[in-house]
Simulated assay, not measured.
Amino acid sequence: MRQITYAPSKYIQGEGELDRLGTYCAQMEAGEAYAIIDPYIVSVYGEEIRSSFAAGGVALEEREFQGECSFAQVEEIVSELYLERVGVILGIGGGKTLDTAKAVSHYAGLPVILVPTVASTDAPCSRVAVLYFEDGRFDRYLSLRRSPDVVVADTGLIAKAPVRLLAAGMGDALSTYFEARACRESGAVTEAGGLGSIAAFSLARACYDTLITDGAAALEDVRQGRVSDQVAHIVEANIYLSGIGFESGGLAAAHAIHNGLTILEECRHILHGEKVAFATLAQLMLEQAPEEELAAVAGFCREAGLPVTLAQLGLADIAPEQLLAAAEASCAEGGPMKNMPFTVTPQDVYAAMLAADRRGQQAG
C-alpha cells in the first residue's frame, strides 16, 4: 500500500506576519484577493489588513464570516465571486472561517491563503474542510483538491486570543499521536489516501512531546501577555505538527467520539478541542492503555483546563439513552472509528466514555 503525506506549500510563522499579507498575495501574482474574515478581526485589525494589501498593490474584497461552516454557506459565497477578477481566496480567523475559505477555494478552483488568528484547531494545514449543518451538528469531511497554498501564523496576534482557545487547540493536538498510533497498528488508510508515513507519525509524536514539554508554560505566558519560545512551540504544535500528523497519520476513535458528541445539544457550547481532549481519554480507555499513559493525559488535561469528565462537558445529567445515541453516532459507517485496530461497538464507546469520566474524577 502506498504512503501519502500532505502539507501546505508554504508555512510561515512569526510575529508581525499580518502586516505582510499583501506582500504574500502579490508574490502569488493571482489578481484580486477575496477575504473571508471573522467579524472581530475586521473590527480590530481591519485597517491593518487593508493597509497591508494597499502596500502590496493588491485589490481586496472582504466578506465577514457569519454562522456555520456549512455547505449552504459555501455555495452562497462561491455564487457571489467575480471569477474574472478574484484570483485568490483568503481565510482570516478561527477554524470554521478557515474551513469555509478552503471549501470556497475548492469549489471556485482558486488558490487559498489561510491566516489563523487562534491556535484552537489544526484546520489551517489540512486538505480537509469540516462541514456542519446550520444547527451545529457535524455534517461531513470534505476532501479538497490540494493542501492550502500558504498558511501564515502571526504568533503575536494568536497570543492575544483568549487562553481558552490556545488550550482547546492543545486538546485537539493531544489526540494526534494516539490516533496516528492506532492507524499505524491497524494499517488504516488515512485522510491523505494512503498508509501513514514515517514523517507524519514522527510529527504526531513530536506534537505530543511538545505539548507535554511546553504546554503549561505557554498557557501561563499567554495569560501574562508574553510571546515566548514556548508559545511559538505550541502554536506550531497545534497548527502544523497536528495538522500534518492527523491528516497523513490518520484519525481514529478520539475524533469519532467527538463527532458523536456533536449530536448532543447540551455540549454544543464546548469547543472542538475540548471535546476531543475528553474523547482522547475515552480512546485510551477503549485501548486499555497503561495507567502511566492515562495519568499523563489526564494530568495534562487538568493542567490545561481541558475537560476530563462528562460534567465538564455539560453532560452531568445526560440520560443514558442520549449518551448511547452519541456513542452510536461515533460508530457511523465510514467514520474514523473504522481505523481502530479492533472492532468497536456503540456499547464499547458508551462504556469507554463512562470509564473516562470515572478516571477523570480521580485525583491522580
Rank of each mutant, 00 (worst) to 15 (best):
174 L>V: 08
256 A>L: 01
281 L>G: 11
284 L>P: 07
28 M>T: 11
318 I>F: 05
37 I>V: 09
176 T>A: 03
186 S>Y: 12
300 F>T: 08
299 G>D: 08
131 L>N: 03
276 V>P: 04
271 L>T: 14
76 E>I: 14
241 L>R: 02
128 V>K: 01
340 M>Y: 13
69 C>T: 00
269 H>G: 14
277 A>C: 02
264 L>K: 01
51 S>Y: 06
6 Y>K: 05
180 A>M: 01
63 R>I: 12
25 C>F: 11
149 D>H: 15
319 A>H: 07
266 E>A: 14
15 E>S: 10
79 S>W: 06
348 D>W: 14
161 A>N: 00
313 L>N: 04
84 E>K: 11
169 G>F: 07
172 D>P: 02
3 Q>A: 02
354 L>F: 10
184 R>E: 04
75 E>F: 13
258 H>E: 12
88 V>H: 11
81 L>F: 06
104 V>A: 00
16 G>N: 15
9 S>A: 08
130 V>R: 08
173 A>I: 08
110 L>C: 04
265 E>S: 15
7 A>Y: 00
203 L>D: 02
325 A>Y: 07
33 A>D: 03
138 F>Q: 03
341 P>C: 00
182 A>V: 14
157 L>I: 15
103 A>Y: 04
281 L>P: 12
152 V>C: 04
320 P>F: 11
126 S>G: 05
327 A>K: 05
187 G>E: 03
326 A>V: 05
68 E>K: 02
89 I>Q: 04
352 A>S: 14
335 G>L: 12
295 A>Y: 14
146 R>P: 03
314 G>T: 04
303 E>C: 15
133 F>V: 03
171 G>N: 01
256 A>H: 01
110 L>N: 05
63 R>F: 09
25 C>M: 15
7 A>S: 04
136 G>K: 03
319 A>C: 08
301 C>P: 03
155 T>R: 00
128 V>R: 00
324 L>S: 01
